[in-house]
Design a protein around this nucleic acid. Structure first.
Lengths: 144, 144
DNA sequence: ATTAATTCGGACAATTTTATCTTATTTGTT
DNA sequence: AACAAATAAGATAAAATTGTCCGAATTAAT
């Protein structure tokens, strides 16, 4: 459904949010260890997230990544997905047509639209706070 | 959402179904031209569909691909997707965890489950006949 | 100032997906 | 039987995605 990069990006952001609530800035190494992802590849993804103003990155010793506490509840999953994979998942044509709309629909246009709209709605209505909370309370997990 | 191979596969199968209703067996060249796909790559996909008993392939002069008329309404989108992309789209974990279930869910497990279940339901309830009909009646299109 | 711990950025490498080419095989037609 | 028109199958190539490495830049601590 999503690219590997996007999967890592979502997990990383959740972990950073969780630690940010505790006032802790986390390093790349911590993140990669926690979400079980390749370090250097994760670094690239974090850079992208930082450039999209989803996370803060701080260079130097004692540097790392964090998110302002009061921003966490305002960051939707859609924003993360958009930063990494773009919006083609819920906007592009299901069969890859470059033009596909009500006037010139692909054979599955309507059927896909329903599913994609629900996906979009879900991504837009899910925020980082609730996801981080799930990890904190031990009802969900970031690895294995 | 789906791989390019799967997109081509779906479009090809719809076109083959449409022609099969008219008693016409279509060649690889016709198919690739109609759905605007690379010929040799499309050939590989058709082979896979044939091996999965979704389409028939006939070798030799006057050969090509077709589907028994009475099978067309029985072939669901899910069957085509499954043959080409497998079932990971609606069965795998949204964040790529190898184990992700009610007992050990990823942070987005429940939210994704809803969307994926709808996708699955849609794929399983959509059959080739209705898709081919859309093309036939000119209400949907296979290219551009 | 020096050092150590970090992220950044660019180059590179491996893997997967997509696409192509070439040769074999099959089959209808002459 | 020979030929032409197809698909099958394997090898190869190109492109995209995923993953790695290394030197540069930044910053806190000593």
């Amino acid at each position: 459904m999503f690219s590997k990069a996007c999967e890592y990006g979502i997990k990383a952001t959740i972990f950073i949010a969780l630690k940010s609530y505790q006032g802790i800035r986390v390093s790349l190494k911590d993140i990669a260890g926690e979400i079980n992802s390749p370090e250097a590849f994760t670094a690239k993804i974090l850079q992208k997230l930082a450039k999209n103003n989803i996370i803060n990155s701080t260079k130097g010793a004692a540097g790392g990544f964090d998110i302002e506490k009061n921003k966490i509840a305002e960051i939707q999953l859609a924003k993360i997905v958009d930063a990494i994979d773009g919006d083609s998942i819920y906007n592009g044509c299901g069969l890859g047509l470059s033009i596909c709309d009500e006037l010139h629909p692909c054979p599955v246009h309507d059927k896909f639209k329903a599913v994609r709209d629900e996906l979009k709605k879900m991504l837009e209505s899910t925020n980082l706070e609730e996801l981080a909370l799930g990890i904190k309370s031990g009802t969900s997990y970031l690895k294995i």
